[in-house]
Simulated assay, not measured.
Amino acid sequence: MGKIRVMVVDDSAVVRNTMTDILMSDPGIDVIATAADPFAAAKKMQEVAPDVITLDIEMPRMDGLTFLRKIMSQHPIPVVICSSLATQGSDTVLKCLEYGAVEIIQKPRVGTRQFLEESRIRITDAIRAAARAKLKKVSAEPVAVQPKLSADAVIPAATRRKGNAMPATTDKIIAVGASTGGTEALKVFLEALPPDTPGVVIVQHMPEKFTAAFAQRLNGLCRITVREAQNNDTVLRGQALIAPGNRHMLLKRSGARYYVELRDGPLVSRHRPSVDVLFRSAARYGGANVVGVIMTGMGDDGAKGMKEMKESGAFNIAQDEASCVVFGMPQEAIKVGAVDSVISLTKLAQEAYRRAK
């Protein structure tokens, strides 16, 4: 099997060149074509067959949203939206997910060496995830990965004691982690939860500032309240808090009150926010009061943290392979023995609610 073949579509020559340099730095990725607009891209697709397309939204002659709809209706190919609109929480970006885009990433821009390295990791990881999405046959050949930090970088591992977790009480928490394909999966999950659902805390891998618009969209669809988390927000019954893009979110406890703490810090399991960070904090401060849910996504973020939750008395549920866009994160959690039940997406909310009640 060969490399992941990518076409970069963007009206900016600078962005096309930068994206090409970033992607070609990964030995498992090959940029086979670039195009300045969708018409040029369509013409080149008659000559080459990309495994993944990176697509800007704001372009001349035809916008990226229209082109995305044409691709998904005529010849589905995994599409990663790469747009400056991702930093603005644009409703247009949300529509891209509805129309079949697999991932959303920010355009690379000038910054510190650390910022550029994190951008490279996020962009190449998005391409790998898209290539394995269930839109097409994908290569099973392993690709090189960068060293990654564990949750120790943000929240130290517990000692022999169980931390500050309370024994099982009437105050339950549902802790959720998701990545590739998770935006639509979370919509299905949250829409099915009743108004009296115990407090929900969520990490979904997505760009900074995008989470606020995502939460607002879900809030208009769900019977529970859905908000982007702010530091020290109390975890309340009938409410879901989504970690802001680019901030780690931890579950904490003060007396009988659960709240969230937002932190900066390095990428953990190649992500910020990281599911492992949330799950480790849930193990420490929630223990048997927590129901863990791990959903569709690339990689293994959340597996170690979910194992810690299980060891602290939590009941853990994984989305099944058939309903996942990418069966990565749930599979890794299952492999390490962290999961108590494997369920299809349409039944996840019902089971999580039942266990939390």
Rank of each mutant, 00 (worst) to 15 (best):
S12N: 05
D21Y: 03
V14Y: 14
P156Q: 12
G313S: 01
H248T: 08
A314M: 00
I343Y: 11
E321T: 03
A243V: 10
A35I: 01
E103L: 07
L85Y: 11
L236A: 14
I32M: 04
A144W: 02
K43D: 15
N164R: 14
F327R: 13
G265H: 05
I29Y: 01
R217P: 03
V8A: 08
D91K: 13
T225E: 15
A126S: 12
G89N: 04
I202V: 13
K357S: 11
P198K: 10
I105M: 09
K3F: 00
G328P: 05
Q350R: 15
R5D: 10
S25D: 09
I123P: 00
L94V: 02
F39H: 14
I173W: 05
A126D: 06
G337K: 01
L94R: 05
K162R: 11
M309P: 01
D233N: 15
L65W: 01
L97G: 12
G2V: 07
T296V: 14
G163E: 08
V235H: 08
V15N: 12
T34Y: 14
D152V: 00
S150G: 15
I127V: 14
F115L: 08
I22E: 01
T87Q: 12
G64A: 09
S119C: 10
P50R: 02
A356N: 05
A157P: 12
V93T: 00
A356F: 03
L65E: 06
K347C: 07
P76T: 00
L218E: 03
F115K: 12
S119Q: 15
A178N: 02
V293Y: 02
L85W: 11
A158N: 11
N316G: 11
S274P: 07
Y99E: 09
A229R: 06
K137T: 06
V277Q: 08
K209W: 07
G265I: 03
S139R: 06
D276S: 14
S83T: 09
H205Q: 04
V143W: 00
K136H: 14
I155P: 04
S344D: 15
L97D: 10
G181R: 13
A243S: 11
L55C: 04
I224S: 13
L186P: 02
F67M: 06
A158P: 12
F315M: 07
K335S: 11
L190K: 06
P273G: 04
M166K: 12
A213Y: 01
K137Y: 06
L193Y: 14
S83N: 07
N231A: 13
T159D: 15
R132H: 13
A229Y: 03
P27K: 07
G238C: 09
V200D: 09
Y258M: 03
R113F: 10
Q46V: 01
G177K: 06
P167R: 02
I22S: 00
M1Y: 06
T112V: 03
H248K: 04
V336M: 05
G297R: 03
P167D: 06
V201A: 11
